[in-house]
Computed example of a mutant assay.
Amino acid sequence: MLFTEKQYFKQIWLWAIILITTPISILPIVNSSEVNLVSLLICLVPTLLIIILFLVMNLKTSINQKSIDIQFFPFIRKPKSFLWDDIQKIELKKYQPLVEYGGWGIRGLGDDKAYNIKGNIGLKLFLKNGKKVMIGTQNPKNLNKVIAEICKSQKIPFHNSLTE
């Protein structure tokens, strides 16, 4: 493995929203004169499931001589591979997740998808079938080094717009 990165949702603003809305969602039930276990569970279980989901959700990117592989656990458990032979060109760039893809996570419509956890730097793959894939990264320096080396050996055009 030449490059591996695993990212989690650790943004303070996200956890603040989750932790503030949890008591707010339970408060009406607790303040009710007829508190019962069923109504409390109906309110509490989905909130706890969301918290657990954000704790375990992660994006793993692996790059080797054969492919670029991504997993977005728990939604993509088996690695999704992008073979070097299927890639037309690659760009390491800054982008606007909210504007271009509608936010973070597994995003995008049609032939332009994004897999990202946080930040605004990503590796954009332009595939030979016309599809585009943006893979977010928190480690652009190491990613650049590995991608530049592999693209050179694979004769795939690579552009790093972060260095401009």
Rank of each mutant, 00 (worst) to 15 (best):
I121T: 09
T137C: 03
I29K: 07
K93Q: 11
W15Q: 04
E164P: 03
W15V: 00
P140W: 04
L40T: 03
Y115S: 04
L19A: 06
K124P: 04
V146S: 08
I51G: 05
N160R: 00
I18P: 01
D86Y: 05
K128F: 02
G136F: 07
I76E: 04
A114Q: 03
V35M: 08
I24P: 06
T47C: 14
P46S: 02
I147G: 06
L125V: 03
I147D: 01
S67Y: 10
F75L: 09
T137M: 03
N160W: 01
W15H: 00
N58C: 08
K78A: 14
S32Y: 08
V35P: 01
I156M: 03
K131R: 15
Q71C: 13
L27T: 14
K131T: 11
E100G: 06
L162M: 08
K124Y: 07
K141T: 10
P74K: 01
K152E: 13
K94T: 14
G110L: 13
I20K: 08
S62N: 15
K155A: 14
F158S: 01
K118L: 10
F73P: 07
Y101H: 04
D112A: 04
K145C: 13
L162F: 03
I20V: 14
L41H: 06
L83Q: 11
W13Y: 10
F3G: 02
K113P: 04
F9D: 06
Q7C: 07
T47L: 12
W84R: 02
P74T: 00
K80F: 09
L83D: 07
K132Y: 11
T61Y: 11
F54E: 07
M1D: 09
I70R: 06
N139T: 14
I70L: 10
F9K: 05
Q11N: 08
I24N: 02
G130S: 08
W84M: 06
F54H: 05
P23K: 11
T21M: 14
L37V: 14
V56T: 08
K128L: 04
L127H: 00
V30E: 08
F3E: 01
M57C: 09
T22L: 14
C151G: 10
S62C: 14
T22M: 12
G110Q: 09
L40K: 00
P23E: 11
Q7P: 03
F3K: 00
K155V: 10
M134I: 02
I52T: 05
K89E: 02
V99G: 13
K131W: 09
K141Y: 11
P97Y: 10
Q65E: 15
K152Q: 11
N116V: 05
H159Q: 15
N31Q: 15
I42P: 00
D69K: 11
L98M: 12
